[in-house]
Design a protein around this nucleic acid. Sequence first.
DNA 1: CTGGTGGCTGTTAGCGGTAACACTAACAGG
DNA 2: CCTGTTAGTGTTACCGCTAACAGCCACCAG
Lengths: 338, 338
Amino acid sequence: MTKPTPDPRHTLTLRDVSEASGVSEMTVSRVLRNRGDVSAPTRERVLEAARALGYVPNKIAGALASQRVNLVGVVIPSLSNMVFPEVMTGISETLDGTGLQPVVGVTNYLPDREESVIYEMLSWRPSGMIIAGLEHSTAARTMLARAGIPIVEIMDIDGDPINHAVGISHRRAGRQMAEEIIAAGYRKIAFLGTQMPNDFRAKKRLEGFEEALSRAGLTLVDREYYSGGSALLKGREMTAAVLNRTPDVDFLYYSNDMIGAGGLLYCLAQGIDVPGRVGLAGFNGVELLDGLPRKLATMDACRLEIGRKAARLIADAPPASQVEELFPTLQPGDTIRH
Amino acid sequence: MTKPTPDPRHTLTLRDVSEASGVSEMTVSRVLRNRGDVSAPTRERVLEAARALGYVPNKIAGALASQRVNLVGVVIPSLSNMVFPEVMTGISETLDGTGLQPVVGVTNYLPDREESVIYEMLSWRPSGMIIAGLEHSTAARTMLARAGIPIVEIMDIDGDPINHAVGISHRRAGRQMAEEIIAAGYRKIAFLGTQMPNDFRAKKRLEGFEEALSRAGLTLVDREYYSGGSALLKGREMTAAVLNRTPDVDFLYYSNDMIGAGGLLYCLAQGIDVPGRVGLAGFNGVELLDGLPRKLATMDACRLEIGRKAARLIADAPPASQVEELFPTLQPGDTIRH
DNA sequence: CTGGTGGCTGTTAGCGGTAACACTAACAGG
DNA sequence: CCTGTTAGTGTTACCGCTAACAGCCACCAG
């Protein structure tokens, strides 16, 4: 066995099917797309011929001719942190049946890469674009605005959308969590989070959090940042570091659930009284947490719903820009004292 | 603000740029693709015009004309189980700089869906396809074989590849783990795994595992299957169920690390002596495990390397079919007694 | 018998690029 | 002066498909 079947003749086109079934290319095209009237016997013959030949239509040519591309570009920072796969699920779910298909691009939180991913996607002339976040380079914003297709910026609504936006207010989410923590009586609060300079949403949450603290006359007693590596492990390490450096800390606010889970496991292993001696909270509401020995306090980010609504906006393409704010619910879990 | 800039005139084409810069479309095309000689001043003028207009080339047209598409289809069962994102990383890494770009399609372990995803992808005439697994519908195999492009089936090599294959032998991996467990003196061994009828790789691991057991005169003393839900949580539940039902079990072999981690957390919480009273092992070598209080025994599936090698095969397109077997290494962790 | 009216099928003209080749000026060498 | 070469640019003919419209035939009403 050498090449994967070096193709008897050339690569198949409509013409091959049309010759094999004795009708015009146009009729074949109609049959294959279920468009226009074609008599039942003709349809049968064509389908049979196509099947027999193993014909796969060339969407490139089809798209060019029809000026229609059934693709939706989805630009997200990462696939590996559990949050975006869920958004994707919501998107696929909603797009299924509309004839549209998602195509993902990953930016790794790099603005340059984001720009080129967007450029690349637009050059395929998709029917719409879904993009995480509201912060993009000027060039990227311009390209998107000029593309003449629906654009949905997701996850975040604290900012100025290009077109549509669906998400939560991370600033408010941070504030809300802080208020909850303060109400529970914690006072020596530390933050543990990602270093990523381009995770704007984590940054906004922290801003909201600190704002609420300062309104209560408090400030963070410690902070610890990380980047890269296994989040669970980092959570352990950072927690150890903070507890060591600031022994009187009584609350650890994590920028995401994964490091929060690491922290929780560490505390439990150390026999630290949670939530009595220290309270813990994360962010996201990842499914993973269900399996932990104790439930981490968190806030769901409405990821599934965001995906669904964003896809809906692309599919429906309403004429006017829309901003849909969703409201995360706090899940107190077992790591904030009642 | 209504529509995203209803586009002054129409959508931009090469002609617009050519008119704006006073050269032919062909010259603009050459400049934009860095192909053929174009004088420096002309190149400048063209680039300037393109930038000023915000021109984004139409790859659809380009691809049709040049019969070249710089896309590589990647078909995988799921994005949410941590294993495929890592494969993707390997693929992207290697493809970067070759001018090729990965496009993923997700099948959710459904053969029908796999078939349609493959069909859909092939209809974009990609430069190559990377597909998880060796088990596909006849129609899918035929389409792929006929496509006349390099096909790489990944993850698994226990079977008959269409063209190239890169992966590990899951059967051998299962066998190896069983041998290790037996050598460590465990005798009452149970299996806990996914129900998924279409996770062929998990199935092969189990086959290899049982084969090695029976060669040692042993059989599984219990087995427990799950589907859906939080894997970590399922791991706890299943572990509880097995320990309850078969109290004298002394080893729990999990079909993946995630449920294994759940089981480990459960055992630790119950104060069960691991690895004295029961040993545990999973499969995959997911990064997550680094953060657990104790290291789960596992076997890495060479995911990154598989992604890299698969991408290399597409990029290099060797004339003859290749099968690259990788060899996972056993990571004994702390859950098998020395 | 004529003129609709629909159902079905074919024809024509692109879609927006690019390959391949043709052309042109400028200059070198014989 | 002519020819050959080279760099830079333009022309032509598609790529494989579809929109739009043009036929054609059977059938029916008037």
